[in-house]
Amino acid sequence: MDQPLWDQVGQPLNRRHEPRMAVGSVLPVQLRFLPNGQPPGAWMTADILDISHGGMALLVPCLETTLVGEPLLLDVSQHPGFGAVRLPAVLRWSCPAGELGLLQLIGVQLDQPLPRVPPLVQSRK
């Protein structure tokens, strides 16, 4: 039987095997969903909230539909520390962020774990 993804108060359970590293004000990444058998979705901006060797928590504009397990592509070109421009990943969880329903938190798992967590380029906000 599958284990629940949410605790009793509706918060996502922490299932990461790697420690999360919270980030400050860093440049965003771009992402697009790659639904099976359909054209790729449009690129959207995502703010990195935390990162580990295996994935990231991101803040994105509210999505109409999200399917756990859906493949996606991250454009991390603003952060040369990744050593790559694009990283394939998969959506692992999603939940609303804020009361107005304009933002969403998502968790993505990278197809290939990072050998090290890269330094991220700080934003000039």
Rank of each mutant, 00 (worst) to 15 (best):
Q30M: 15
L67N: 08
P35V: 11
D47H: 07
V29R: 01
V9H: 14
L67T: 12
Q122F: 07
L114H: 06
G83F: 04
P71N: 07
S94P: 00
M56R: 01
P28K: 08
D75F: 05
F33Y: 11
K125N: 13
Q112L: 11
G54M: 03
L27R: 15
E18G: 01
L73K: 09
L5W: 04
N14C: 05
L72D: 00
V85A: 15
L72F: 03
E64F: 10
E18Y: 14
V9R: 15
G10A: 12
D75Q: 10
W93S: 06
S94Q: 09
Q3V: 08
D50S: 10
G10M: 11
N36V: 14
F82M: 04
L114V: 07
Q3Y: 13
L63G: 05
Q38R: 15
A89M: 02
L114G: 06
G81S: 06
L63K: 07
V9T: 15
Q112N: 12
Q122V: 12
A57P: 00
P71E: 03
G69M: 03
D7L: 07
V76Q: 02
L120I: 05
P118R: 07
V60N: 03
P61Y: 00
L58A: 02
A42S: 14
Q11G: 05
Q38M: 13
P39G: 08
W6T: 09
L34F: 04
V121F: 04
G69E: 03
L100K: 10
M21C: 12
T65R: 14
Q109H: 08
V23Q: 01
M21H: 15
S77G: 10
V90G: 04
G101S: 05
D75K: 08
L74V: 09
G83H: 05
V29I: 15
N36K: 13
G41R: 11
S77N: 10
M44G: 02
P12Q: 04
L87W: 01
P119I: 04
S94N: 08
L73R: 12
H17N: 13
G107D: 04
P28T: 07
W93Y: 13
L73S: 11
Q104H: 02
Q38T: 05
P12T: 04
S77L: 08
L59F: 01
G83V: 06
H17Q: 15
L73N: 11
Q38D: 10
A84Q: 15
Q112K: 13
A89V: 02
V60P: 00
L5G: 08
G98L: 05
V117F: 01
R86A: 11
M1H: 11
P118I: 06
S52Y: 01
M1K: 10
G81R: 05
D2M: 11
G24W: 05
V68P: 03
L73I: 10
S94M: 01
G37N: 12
L58K: 02
S52E: 03
E64K: 14
R32E: 04
P40C: 10
G98C: 06
T66I: 09
L91I: 13
D2G: 04
I51W: 04
L49I: 10
L73W: 07
A46Y: 01
G83T: 05
Q109L: 08
P39C: 03
R124C: 11
F33D: 00
Q122M: 12
L120M: 08
R15D: 11
Q38L: 14
